[in-house]
Each structure stands twice: as structure tokens, then as C-alpha cells.
Design a protein around this nucleic acid. Structure first.
Length: 397
DNA sequence: TCTGGGGTCCTAGGACCC
DNA sequence: TCTGGGGTCCTAGGACCC
């Protein structure tokens, strides 16, 4: 099992787009002192304590004066991600994308394919092939990457992290538990800040301690994941690649499509946006994304966050639709149900789920959907902002 | 750690059906 | 009208990932 991870991916792409950023501290995520969070930080700026996930404001204070802050280029990242995948696919027929900057390959059975000399054992052969692969990604795309090779998927991921930057680490069969034992629990995918704190409370800080801990102390923390987490902490378990993320997956024969489509917006203090304007525009975005994917939504969930960070969600299941006006009506109802406190709102979000494939004939009978598709056609020609629902446009006098 | 925006998956209670 | 137990769906909330 091999995990290939592109190093500081967004920063690396930004440097391809603007070579003057090479060697400089770079922060991707937003303009300096603006709003947002860091999505990628170059190694130069990590030395100052800037990390992905940190607020742009805090990063702005920590970063040196010559640091460059860029908002990011999402379409370019997707394009480079796809090209990286094409290179990875040369090395194994079994590849899945785990995220935009991360791919897993199943290399079992490929040893004979890559063997160069009789002296090479399987590990040496695989290690050389993976080094060739990361070199190819660098040579052909100009992107640095790291890789981890191990008997299980999660250990391969951990190993790729240990190998960074621009390294390849192979954990030999039999060495799994010893490799993992000294690492902090947080290194294991699936253990986040909450689980880390709760483990600390029962005296567990390393993966070795987690493996040795009694079931009764882990169960309350991990629930259904307990045995999987413990197995992964020992380095055994998931030796299958598993499913591709639902967004990339085929739908099933009944027209059910996995996944959700969501959009949310945090209110800026200075903005005079009203909740109903934001709601309308979120509704249009979500519905138009559903239509462009050719799906109807059977569930809508509204998320409302107050300025004190208390978050309420209200959802409803209904006959599948992708019409703006229908979804908008439901969204307004949900908003009324959720908005019970007299406190300013920090964030509004909408998500559609229970997606199913839109049948071809349905729009002919459904005026709302037909109107929405006409709107999409206008937008295809003139841009997204060419047309909006009346209520999502600020009234001017 | 004063916290964006896109997602996935699990839990737990209640309704409803057989 | 009360009772048991299982299955499934709905809803709200929360942890985690990139």
C-alpha cells in the first residue's frame, strides 16, 4: 500500500503560476489581515509558527514582513491534481484519490513488474519504483511530493507524513507497531483534537499507550471506531484501498447518488447583507450545482451559527427537486424554525442531500425546474451573476 | 486554536410499521 | 387496548478530514 501526498500543494501550484514566489514565505487562504483561514503554508513561513487551519489574521501577525499572502486558484489546483493522478496511474492500475493532494496505490503484485536485478528484494524494488514516481511528478509537473509505503493504508499515510518534505519512507513488514508506538496519537488519521484531549485525560499520549489501553477506556471515546482505531494504531487492519470518495463514485442503478452539495457563508461585520439575501443566494448556488450534476435533491438542511458560535441545524426531507423556488420556500421555512434567539447571525449554510439522478422527462412537467434550467443556460453564456432571484439582489434606490 | 468552506460518517431518540 | 421486539426512516448534533 502506498500513499502519495503532494507537499504544500497549493503553495507549490502558486509558485508555478508565479515563479517570483519561489523561496519566499507564502501563505494561501486570503489577503493579509483579511478574513479566512490558511489552507496551505510554505516551509519558510512554518518556521514562524504559521500552520494550515490557522486564521489569516493570526498568520498575518506571525508571518514576516516579506511573506506573500494569496487567496488561491481552485480551478488550477483541480487541474494539477488530475495530472498528478495520471502520473500515479502509470505505476498501478489500482489508484484512488483521497483528497485533492493525496492518492493511494495498491502495489501488491507489482514487484515483478519493477524488478531490475536478481539482487533486489521486494521492498527495494517497490521503494525504487515509488521514488521514480515522485521524481516523475516533480519533473513533469514541477510539484514536490512525498510517499509512504506500508502494509496498511493508514500506516502508509502516517509514513508519507514522516517522509516529508520530498521523501519516501517504507515501513517494512513486521516493523509496523514499533514505528507507530512512539508517535503522538494525533498523528493517526481519525484522531482529531477532541479525541486527543480525551485520551490525554486518561493518560494516553502515544499510539503505543493507546494499543495497550483497555477496551473500556477507549470505547467511550471512539464508539464504533474503537477496534478500527486500535488496529490502525498497531499498524494492522485496513489493507484494502476502500472506496473512492462519493463525489468521484458512480451512482447506483436506482438513480441514488451519494454525497451532499453544500454552500455556506460567514457574515462579515462590515457587510449589510441580510439573512434573506444570503439565503436566496445560497439557495441558487446549491440548486444550480445540483442541476449541473444532473441530480435532484430530496433533503435540505439549513445551518445557522450565532455570533456566540452556538450552531443550529434544521432539515427536511421531501419529494426530490432541483428548482430554485421550491428549495427557496423550504429554506425560508427552515430558517424560521432555526432562528429562535435574538442574537446576530455569524453564518448561514445550506446543504442538499438524498440526491438522485434527474430523469430526462421530469423538467417537461415541472415548471419550476424548467425555469431554473433556463436560468442556468443564461448563466452559461453570460456568467453566474447575470441572473438572480429578485430576493437575492440588494434593493437599491 | 477566537475558529472558512467543502465534505464524510456516526450517534441517539422518536415515529412508524409489522 | 395492552403488550414485545425488530427494522427502517427521519432529524439534530458532533467529530474528523483537507
Amino acid at each position: 500500500m502506498c500513499c502519495v501526498d503532494l507537499d504544500t500543494f497549493f503553495v507549490s501550484v502558486e509558485r508555478l503560476l508565479d515563479p517570483s514566489l519561489r523561496g519566499k514565505p507564502v501563505v494561501v487562504g486570503g489577503r493579509r489581515f483579511g478574513r479566512g483561514v490558511v489552507t496551505s503554508a510554505s516551509y519558510e513561513v512554518r518556521g514562524f509558527g504559521v500552520r494550515a487551519g490557522m486564521s489569516i489574521r493570526e498568520a498575518s501577525e506571525r508571518a514576516p514582513a516579506d511573506a506573500v499572502f494569496v487567496p488561491g486558484h481552485g480551478d488550477e489546483y483541480s487541474d494539477y491534481s488530475r495530472r498528478a493522478r495520471e502520473i500515479v496511474e502509470r505505476y498501478s492500475p489500482i489508484v484512488i484519490a483521497a483528497s485533492i493532494d493525496e492518492h493511494y496505490l495498491d502495489l501488491r503484485g507489482c514487484e515483478r513488474l519493477y524488478r531490475r536485478s536478481e539482487d533486489d528484494d521486494d521492498d527495494a524494488t517497490i521503494l525504487r519504483a515509488v521514488r521514480e514516481m515522485t521524481a516523475a511528478i516533480d519533473r513533469e509537473l514541477g510539484l514536490p511530493s512525498s510517499a509512504g509505503i506500508a502494509t496498511s493504508k493508514s500506516l502508509a499515510k502516517v509514513a508519507s507524513g514522516l517522509a516529508k518534505p520530498q521523501g519516501v519512507l517504507l515501513v517494512r513488514a513486521g516493523a509496523e507497531a514499533d514505528t507507530l508506538a512512539p508517535l503522538p496519537v494525533r498523528k493517526l488519521p481519525g484522531i482529531g483534537p477532541v479525541a486527543e484531549a480525551r485520551l490525554m485525560a486518561v493518560g494516553i499520549t502515544t499510539l503505543g499507550q493507546l494499543v495497550a489501553a483497555p477496551e473500556t477506556s477507549l470505547r467511550p471515546i471512539f464508539g464504533a471506531y474503537t477496534s478500527g482505531i486500535r488496529a490502525a494504531s498497531r499498524g494492522d487492519g485496513d489493507d484494502e484501498l476502500g472506496r473512492e470518495r462519493p463525489a468521484f463514485r458512480e451512482h447506483d442503478p436506482h438513480g441514488v447518488v451519494a454525497g451532499t452539495i453544500s454552500n455556506e457563508r460567514t457574515f462579515v461585520e462590515t457587510s449589510a447583507d441580510t439573512a434573506s439575501e444570503v439565503l436566496s443566494s445560497l439557495c441558487e448556488r446549491v440548486a444550480s450545482r445540483a442541476r449541473s450534476r444532473g441530480v435532484l435533491a430530496g433533503q435540505l438542511t439549513l445551518k445557522l451559527r450565532y455570533t456566540d458560535f452556538v450552531t443550529i441545524t434544521r432539515g427536511r426531507t421531501f419529494t426530490p427537486t432541483s428548482a430554485d423556488l421550491e428549495l427557496h420556500q423550504i429554506a425560508r421555512d427552515l430558517y424560521r424554525e432555526a432562528r429562535t434567539r435574538d442574537l446576530p447571525i455569524r453564518l448561514l449554510g445550506l446543504a442538499v442531500a438524498k440526491l438522485r439522478l434527474a430523469t430526462v422527462q421530469l423538467p417537461l412537467f415541472d415548471g419550476g425546474a424548467r425555469r431554473s434550467i433556463a436560468v442556468d443556460r443564461v448563466r452559461d453564456r453570460f456568467g453566474y451573476h447575470a441572473l438572480h432571484l429578485g430576493s437575492s439582489i440588494r434593493r437599491r434606490r
